[in-house]
Structure formats: C-alpha cells, structure tokens
Design a protein around this nucleic acid. Sequence first.
DNA 1: CTGAAAGCGCTTACAG
DNA 2: CTGAAAGCGCTTACAG
Lengths: 366, 366
Amino acid sequence: MLIRYSKIFLMQEAILVMDEKPRNRVSLKDLANHLGVSKTLVSAVLNGKAKQYRISEETALMVKQAANELHYSPNMIAKGLRTGNSQLIGLIVTDISNPFYSTISRIIENKTDEINYKVIFGSSDESLVKTRQLIDVMLDKGVAGLIIVPCEGSQGLVADLHSRNIPVVLIDRYFPELEVSYSCLNNYNATRQATIHLIEQGYRNISLIAYKSSLSNIKDRILGYRETMVAHALGKHVNVKSVNIDNPLPEVEKALDYLIHRKGAEAVIFITNALLVAGLRSLNKLNKRIPDDVAVVGFYGSELFDLYYSPITYVKQPIEIITEEAVNTLIDKIKYGENRKFSKTFIEPELVIQQSSVKPASTGCN
Amino acid sequence: MLIRYSKIFLMQEAILVMDEKPRNRVSLKDLANHLGVSKTLVSAVLNGKAKQYRISEETALMVKQAANELHYSPNMIAKGLRTGNSQLIGLIVTDISNPFYSTISRIIENKTDEINYKVIFGSSDESLVKTRQLIDVMLDKGVAGLIIVPCEGSQGLVADLHSRNIPVVLIDRYFPELEVSYSCLNNYNATRQATIHLIEQGYRNISLIAYKSSLSNIKDRILGYRETMVAHALGKHVNVKSVNIDNPLPEVEKALDYLIHRKGAEAVIFITNALLVAGLRSLNKLNKRIPDDVAVVGFYGSELFDLYYSPITYVKQPIEIITEEAVNTLIDKIKYGENRKFSKTFIEPELVIQQSSVKPASTGCN
DNA sequence: CTGAAAGCGCTTACAG
DNA sequence: CTGAAAGCGCTTACAG
C-alpha cells in the first residue's frame, strides 16, 4: 500500500516538472472529436434528448460509452452560464453552527441532493448588512433560488428579491405583511400548548422569558402564551420578560430572580433553546430545584436535556417537515417562477412532556 | 407599509404579463454600451487593473460610478468559466448537523468570507460512495479546492485528488501514508492527558470506550491511552472496548456493564461526544453515580455538559485554530498549486477538568 | 490609453 | 438523423 502511493508521488513529481496544473478534464469537444461527431450530438445524447433529436440508438450508446470511458463529466459552470441555472441554491441562516440551523441545512442538503442541486450557505448573525451581502454574493454565484431565515428588518430585502422574481422561501420566520412563501412552526400553538399543559398540571403563576425582538416567531410565541393565560382567567399572572438576544445570561438571571421572588412564579416557559440554557444555569445559581421550586418548559430540546437531573419538557419542532415543505416550495418556484403561487405553511408543534413540568406529588388536573 | 408592498405586487403582476422572468441584471456589455466604451475597459477598471492598463483616472472613476448607479455586479459564473475559478470551495464533512462539524463550517465560512469565497458543503455519512459523489459534483461545480473530513478507506480518493493537483486539505483526520496536507487535533496527547489526569486523581483501573474504526483520530486516541497506561505500569488495567459507529447505545451499555462489573473499572474515557452521551445514558440506567461509582472523561463537550449533575471533564478541541490552519493551507494551495508544500498540523488539546473525574473525598495525587 | 476579437465549455435554435 | 454557428458574460492577449 505504502509503496503504491509512493509511486504515485514520484510520477506526480515528474508531471509537475512539465506542467504546473495538469487538470486533465475532458470536455464535450474532446469527446466529440474523439468520436468524430459534433458537440451538438454529444450534448443531446448526454442530456437525455436523444429521442427528441431522433438520434439513432447505436449512436447514442456509442456516445454514452465513450463518455464513461473517458470519464467525461460536464462542466457545470459552462452549463450554468448557458442555461442560466447553476444548480445551486443559497441558504441564509442565522448561524450555521447553531444545531437548529445545521439540522435544517442537513435536511435541505438531503432534499436538494435528489435533484442534483448543491447548497451554498451563509450566516447572517441577525445582521441586516450581512444578509444583504450574502444575498448579493449568492445571486452573483448564480443561485437558482434562496431559502432564508430572515433577520429583523429584512422585509425590504425579501420584498426586493420577490419583486425581481427570484425564487425565495422563508423558513422559521415570516413577514405577515409580505406575500412571500414561508414554512414555519405554528409558534402561537407552541406556547399555547405549553401554557395549557402547565395549567393542567395545576400551575397558575406562569411566566415567560423571551427575546426583545419583533420577529414573527418571537411575537407569536409571546402571543400564544398571553392569550392562553387570559383565556384561562389568569391574565393577572401574565409576566413576560424580554432579554437581549446576545449574551442573555445576566438578564435572564435577573429576570428569574425577579419573577420567582417578587412575582411568585411557579413555572417558567423559555421560548428558545439558548434562553433555556441560560435559564437552567440561572436556576442552579439561584438554588432553585426543578420542578419542586419552579417548573420549566423549553423549546427545541437537545437530546442532552433528557439527561438533565430533571429531564426538560420542551416544544419539539418538526424540523424535517418544516424544512421539506420549504424546499418543495422553492423547487416549485424554481421550476415555474417565483410568483406562481404563494404558499404559507405552519407546522404544528409537539410538546414533549418530561419531569421538569410535572407537578411533584401531583395535585392532579384542574 | 402594507400599502407600499401591495403596490409593488400590483406592478409586479403587470410586469409578469409581459415577461415571465424579468431578471434584470445589468451585464458588463450593458455597462459598456451605456458609457460608450469597450467591455475591456470596464472589465479592467472593475478588476482594479486600471493602473496596469494605464487607464486615466477620470475614465476609471466614471466607470466605477456608473457601475454603482446601475447596480452592476459581475456574473461570477461567467467569470468562473473564463478564469477557471469559481470562488467556491467545497467542504465535505461527516454530517453537517453534527455540532462539531457545523462549528467547523462556520469557521470556514468566516475565514473564506474574507477572500470572497463561498462554501458548498456535503455530508458523507462516513460513506465512501457518498464521498466520491460529493467530490465529483463539487469538482463539476468548479470548486477551487476542497476541505475534507475523510471517511474510512478514502485514501484512494484523496490521493487521486492530490495527483490531479487539485488543492485539498484534510481536517480532523489524516492518512499517515499520504503526503496530503492536514490539520488535526493531537489525538494521542488528548487521551494521554486524560489518562494522566485520572492517574493523578488516584484512579488505576481506567477503561476506554472507542469506535471500531481504522481512522487516524480513533487509532491515535486509543494509542495515547494505551501507551500512557503502560508507561505508568498499569498495562494490566488496559481495557479498550470498541463499538459500532452507528447506534452505539446498546453496545456501550453492554461494554460498561462488563467493564464495571467484571473488570472493576473505576474510570472510563469516552473518545467521542456521541460515545459520551451514550455512556451517560447507560450509566444512569446502570444506576452508577459519577464520579462516586465511576469517573468519566469525555471529548468535545457541549456546554450542556456543564449543567449535568456532575459536570463532565472533557478534552477540548481548539476547533477554531484547527480549522483556520486548514483554511490557510488550502488558500495557499489554491494560490500556488497543490503540490507546493505539504503541511501537517497537530493542534494540542486542552483538558477541561470538572467534577466528573475528580476523586470524591480526594485521596490526593499519587 | 483604448478596442476588436478570441475563447472558457456548454446548449439551442436553425439548416440541411 | 446530424452539424455549423451563435451566444451565455466574462477576461485576456494582441494590436493600435
């Protein structure tokens, strides 16, 4: 084995002396010349248009065989330039290193693989400027369409894309004022379910910790909680604390301290994964036990939460379904044009109930 | 606001009647015509070659202004076809939804952004076939180079890339028999440090749980443990259990049961994050407390492990440094050719010591 | 200082 | 059934 590779290196060095970049790709022209036919013919056969061009089966077979033998593989850049389709789609998320978004990326990868598209991604970090830059670069690269987790204030960018008839689908968040397709969790129902569950467990004084944000997902989550509380005549216990999106820990700690000690909170809903992590840290620091001192419901649980001393109840997002819907919509748009139809999708959440929200020595349902 | 967007939609519909795809990008030609100059001139100016072509400053300024006003932005596909550089780099990881690899992706994104490259990614799922397909597709898309987490048995593919003089850098794993650049953790030292730490804590009967794999990172981790044990005259306590890479949970459980009950293991090192998670689940099930019944050291900790009832000691990978080194090497190769230099980099790990590996009622160091 | 022309590797009317 | 030619939007010798 070792010897074999050494050999390759020796050969390689020899080649290098002659030519710095021996990227010996065989082109359509090479193939055509080799066979003594025209590029048109080869192109037609290799694109499965032999029938349409009424090319004889023998000829077609000959071309295909040669293509295999010579390891011909089409230059997608040239193809893209000619057809205007690079077989690339752009994905703009908040941060690819966030497991939620990397999971979305993976699902998009799987779905687009089937139709031979590749994904180029970018992280916006919730920045409008970065989002704009990413969109521009991706368009320059010739993406056929975009899937975007839109940041706050990016309505204009998205509307612009739409008005230029560029296929775009929003995911995770949407803009109610825009007629741009999206696929999201039903965030209203998510906190609604969480709240009802806590009420059924016998909790009354239920608080919610959120982000300061005008994004649809955040607003809907707050609304779902608030309206459910009011509907159960618990309006007087509605307490929403909104913290800054970056470095939420100190604010969360202060909020929890306040909610528990001043407001008598018996249960807290954390509406994002990062808030939950900050919340658990804070509760440890405040020496509060879950669920004995305070019940907890989170969002989008990591499997590690199952290992917590008090496994955490959380709102599960059917990410796979949400994402697949977005991809399907995008593919549809790429095929038939952006403005053909406007698809809004809300996927229902699932509440995974674990120990953290179950009332100890349960007093039963109300 | 709402009204403004409605208006846009109405206009849009009007346009649509006339033309299905009004992608009104302005091209170099458009710009040249608009200005009454040649494409050559415009191209030179916009590529910062005004000086080189001795173009007057006024002319250059005029061109730049017009480019801004008309929102000209170069078609990278055309540019890529002509120059043979698509400003794209390919990233092949095991699974982009794995936080370790998505973190790598993010760092690569940041680094390549600086030089205006975009990343297309693909997940190999440790499959040779998928790896081959991904490489082919990415090459077809014209990537300027590749960063690869190579799966088992992919030496041939990597060597082939190298011999075709395609810039490639391996990350996380390497093939000692290939002269292909890589950037990895010093895995030997990682388990070495972990083992020494446990020995210093007074543990003697230390086991290790690994994957069945011939990959360098796995082999080095096992070796680091084994040799350190032997060096401390603990060879008789060397116990390595290797489980299957997919669905490790049942095997890990069986292994732990055996190691603890038959072999009297006092401490266990889990050499990947997934193994650690499986290990914690299993220990819970076996009713073993950490570190009282058994001490634990893991790899690449999630911040959630800090929240565990017994915060987990783990080997921290300086992912940022490892990745940046890989990117720098790749960029270098893209600029100067793959075979210019062969860079092997091992980054030193850092052991983050927490409660899970600290001997209770400590008997001190040996 | 500036422009006409060729060509990157494809596809697609068009002509035969 | 098959091929010559144009053209996608760029860059780069080359000529002036």
